[in-house]
Design a protein around this nucleic acid. Structure first.
Lengths: 167, 167
DNA sequence: CTAACATATATCGCATACGATGTATCGTGT
DNA sequence: ACACGATACATCGTATGCGATATATGTTAG
């Protein structure tokens, strides 16, 4: 149990660190973390629907809708009705934003963690990656055993594991 | 960078899994996750101040104050003015709640993760723990280098690391 | 074509979450 | 006693975050 507590707290800690790192960057641009995530995702797709944003960012559609609403009212995003499907809207960057935007935004999230890894020796990085893989696959196994399979609230795409489900 | 992306997503995934696990238990008792965390902490201390709750749960004082307020209005917690310090209030479980409460609440948080670890072989558990330690200490190192040291937004007490700061 | 169903958003209500600020109290120094 | 800073909370404003529901539009069965 001691071990589990350590791992749980470590995950909490790491999560908070990543949030703080993102926040640092976000605040410099006058937006919040979720707003930055939305902007980055829109940037990566040029034009994208609320639905897809919701799926990619693992947030509910209503949450994304609210955030996009605030960003459009701030003039950072633009909503264009989709001619193909009038229920849908195309979210894109506003002209001002797309001008002055940093081209490597999508990588901001990983940047700080990448720098952290570079502090370590290759075999240490290996250990971390292996440990992560073991833990993630064990959790997935547990989820299946508990019938949480259909949650699909997150896909760690980089690790095949035993996930065989499609959608 | 590929490696960093995998680790970031893994941490996200693990965090979400722990949340879901806690949520499962919490919802059965008609409270939310943060409420359950507050109740568990109050239970563990019998009587505790807002300040200490805030520190232990890593939430701001205002957030804790709000949650305690909702729980007291639901009759689950009781606020008693502290005679020693009239600025402070003692938070304790209501009589009804302290009767029917599950005695091992404090362990709920770690329970599911503990079960996950038991799916693995001892040497695999070792790898996970080592990887976690390496990553956490590397992050701490990075934080010091970046001057985020004074954040102290979380202490992973189980791992000494190189942290030398107090308070 | 129309009814039934499905889909994409928007909106509402509620619960975090946090910074800023106000209030009461405590401690300390004068 | 008094002033002043520190402390413990409460409250307010704003921003997520999500479930439930409403609305408009697409799709399909008959």
């Amino acid at each position: 149990m001691e071990k589990a507590a350590f791992i749980r707290e470590s995950i909490d800690f790491l999560q908070r660190y990543m949030m703080k790192s993102l926040q640092k960057y976000s605040e410099e641009h006058g937006v919040t973390i979720p707003q930055a995530r939305v902007i980055a995702e829109v940037f990566a797709h040029k034009a994208i629907s609320i639905k897809l944003l919701s799926k990619n960012l693992k947030m509910t559609q209503s949450t994304v809708s609210d955030i996009v609403e605030r960003l459009t009212s701030k003039g950072l995003l633009v909503k264009t009705p989709n001619p193909k499907d009038k229920r849908s809207v195309e979210i894109s960057l506003s002209s001002e934003l797309s001008e002055g935007i940093d081209a490597n935004i999508p990588e901001i999230t990983n940047q700080s963690l990448s720098q952290v890894l570079n502090l370590l020796k290759p075999d240490e990085q290996e250990t971390i990656e292996k440990g992560m893989q073991l833990l993630v696959s064990a959790v997935k196994e547990k989820m299946e055993a508990d019938g949480m399979d259909h949650f699909e609230f997150f896909d760690v795409v980089y690790f095949p594991g035993k996930t065989k489900k499609e959608k």
